[in-house]
């Protein structure tokens, strides 16, 4: 049964909410604190970019309550070295020790470059970062990340922003069964039911951005995802009943009225 002590530990921090969220694609930054309050999310991603003089200079960090852990990502990095540079800037800028490593060279499917990601993980873990690498679900890689000091592994369910759900489910299950670090399903989760499915199979958390930010009502969708993550987590802890190819009656098969 799920209790208040069902806590996810990452890098010395404790999370009682297993829905991680992102700040991308919101129609207005003012939706972000409302979404955070409605979803209860305790960790949220941000990205680092060159300033755009044409765009407004609203400070995204001003919309994130202090008690929510910042998870800067290294999006835009094409190499391990670039990811390391972004991580160092984020930490020096006061964003804390958490870093989501995202190294992408394929712009069609936005597939993470597992090799560069491993290199960046090795370097940043040595520098004391809490490293959460975004990867394709690959068990040998996940074990290497673990041995390199990753605080978690974050396999994709389907490509970023596609809302197609757990297309990689059997591969993610291998990670869940064999990794000692937490497994956070990141990318592709489009519906609360898909988040629940990820939690039911034993994911430690999910990271959802597009599905919440681009919903007509992000605040309410944040709440829906929170409920789904809690439902899936509770079901996992309760241990799911077995599947069967044949029907197994729920009501007694004897004592019918006309027998």
């Amino acid at each position: 049964m799920m209790t208040d002590d069902d806590v996810l530990q990452l890098g010395g921090a404790c999370f009682t909410n297993r829905l991680f969220t992102g700040t991308g694609k919101f129609a207005a930054n003012a939706q972000i604190p409302k979404m955070l309050a409605a979803s209860g999310s305790q960790m949220i991603t941000v990205a680092l970019r060159r300033i755009d003089p044409q765009a407004g200079q609203g400070n995204i960090l001003a919309y994130i309550p202090k008690e929510v852990t910042l998870l800067p990502n290294t999006s835009g990095a094409r190499t391990a070295e670039q990811a390391v540079r972004i991580a160092r800037i984020a930490r020096e800028a006061g964003c804390g020790d958490f870093i989501k490593i995202e190294v992408i060279t394929d712009m069609k499917y936005l597939m993470p470059d597992n090799w560069e990601t491993l290199k960046a993980t090795e370097m940043l873990a040595k520098e004391g970062f809490v490293v959460l690498p975004y990867v394709l679900p690959d068990l040998p890689l996940a074990k290497r990340l673990e041995n390199s000091g990753a605080a978690a592994v974050m396999p994709l369910g389907s490509p970023i922003g596609t809302n197609r759900g757990l297309e990689t489910k059997p591969l993610i299950e291998m990670l869940i069964e064999n990794c000692t670090v937490p497994v956070v399903v990141d990318a592709g989760i489009g519906r609360p039911s898909q988040a629940a499915a990820a939690m039911e199979i034993g994911a430690d958390a999910v990271l959802v951005n597009t599905a919440i930010a681009t919903a007509v009502d992000p605040e309410t969708m944040g709440r829906a995802f929170d409920l789904a993550v809690k439902a899936g987590r509770t079901a996992y802890l309760a241990r799911l009943a077995e599947e069967s190819s044949l029907a197994r009656a729920s009501s007694p098969l004897t004592g019918f009225l006309d027998d």
Binding site: G24, F26, V46, A47, R49, R50, I51
Partner: peptide
Amino acid sequence: LELLSFVGGG
């Protein structure tokens, strides 16, 4: 020089 800021991202 790099002039940077945090922006929304996933």
